[in-house]
Design a protein around this nucleic acid. Sequence first.
RNA 1: GUCCUCGUAGCUCAGCUGGAUAGAGCACUCGAUUCCUAAUCGAGAGGUCACGCGUUCGAAUCGCGUCGAGGACACCA
Length: 528
Amino acid sequence: MKKSVIDTIKKHIEGDFVLEKPKDNSFGHYATPLAFSLAKELRKSPMIIADELCLKFDDEVIFESTTAIKGYINFKLSDDFLNAKTTQAIKDNLNFAKGDKNESILLEYVSANPTGPMHIGHARGAVFGDTLAKVGKHLGYKITTEYYVNDAGNQIEMLGLSVLLAGQDRYTDVKVNWPEEYYRGEYIYDLCDVAKDEFGVEIFNDKSNIPKLSSWGKDKMLELIRANLAMADIEFENFVSEKELFELWDKSYEKLKDRDAVFEQDGKIWLKSSECGDEKDRVVVREDGRPTYLAGDIIYHDDKFQRSYDRYINIWGADHHGYIARVKAAVHFLGYDENKLEVILSQMVALLKGGEPYKMSKRAGNFILMSDVIEEIGSDALRFVFLTKKSDTHLEFDVDLLKQQDSSNPIYYIQYAHARINQIFQKSGKSVDDIIDVNLDNLDEDSRNILFLALILPEVLEDSFESRQLQKLTEYLRNLAASYHQFYNKHKIVGSENEEQLLKLSAMVATSLRVGLSLMGIEAKVKM
RNA sequence: GUCCUCGUAGCUCAGCUGGAUAGAGCACUCGAUUCCUAAUCGAGAGGUCACGCGUUCGAAUCGCGUCGAGGACACCA
């Protein structure tokens, strides 16, 4: 809709201009402060310029009026225009607000180590990534979602060791000497129970079985992670194995050598990342020939860029922030445009329950489990709360507040608005088909405002996605729901003179709520 | 020490490509149900946008500085 307005204005005005929404919507639907910036150039007062410019739009049918107020030029859309948009949107239903962006994007997120269950911090990145993908796809972006499985490296061996020791502790007479570092938590014991059933208790006798237990345990943990994700309706298109990629190390290494991006010193191989904005050079291969974690990411990003997407988005935990520079440096050295790589950081989450810190799960080894929280408050509430805040700011929330089923819980508030509209239709005995062709003319100010609000979903989605700030969508839906609740209390719909018009307007609101909620992965209830 | 993120109502946070009188929710006070679900709505109260300087027609928004909070600074992943 905004696009139609911009295109229309461009017919009459040259150059760029800012189009915004007036604070007070009695002024109009859109406004521009253009006259202020022209004032200097034209040596006239902004008020006079605005008055003159307004006249140019008299003949445009999409505007009911164009008025100059205190230097701002305000555009009010016509009923015909709004009506046409509404009819189409209601017909489109879940396809409303679809876009025609065509860019391809590889979106990598979560990528939690397969050494244990998902905790609440992972869940935030997971929900954010999943929703970003849903919104992006709706806008037409070709998005592939990917999970990078860190199945190489010490931590996998440590998983095997932990299972072995837990098995010895539980099923043998061996007195276990616990090392300084190993995975704690009941889930390791659960895992050793399963290992015992599958392999027999002998598996715990010999340390030479560690590699076998490692690889087996990693697969089990990946299953667990997938199950955790599924609880929040999150699925990935690709899982990429770090271990398998390592076979391609030689190729990536050759590339780096050819580009003079690496050097040897003290028996190690270093990446000259400091030449590309990193603080210092980084080791990629250790003295003993084992590649570092960075080497894995070099291969992975080499692989990603060879698949030639238009853009690459990684969602990482905020603790990886220092890591961005070196990966970008690597991408640059590999001969790709590092500006195509974008990293979104997902900040930590602090959970409260009844005002007190949420109890850590002993099962998990002192983490808060994603599965525990979902069992307690449900997937909808979890998704919602993560989507109300920017991903890169700290988030604190109280699970008890999300369990309350009243106005203090915004998710019910939005769902109630949607349910309410369905109930109104039921009461009226009419269906959407009955009212779709009603003409929305001579609407009062309230009706027109709420209709307009429901119609701007496309620009809200676009803004949310482009700025990677999904809280804008959440905020919008809350506003739309609030406006509708207000409207409902003020206006009787069923049985009123213009019942059909008001039903159509309600159907429009429901459409936007439904599309918005579905993109957030939240159920739009028809009855509560 | 260096770098990031942040500082807005009692609390949790929006707003930040500079724009009209700084917003929402919660909490608090008062009010609304013979009438489409009161899981709702209305009204009230609540602000030095951390502080200072600068940029300009205009700054919560941009720049510099100060103070404060959290985080990152591996040959671990």
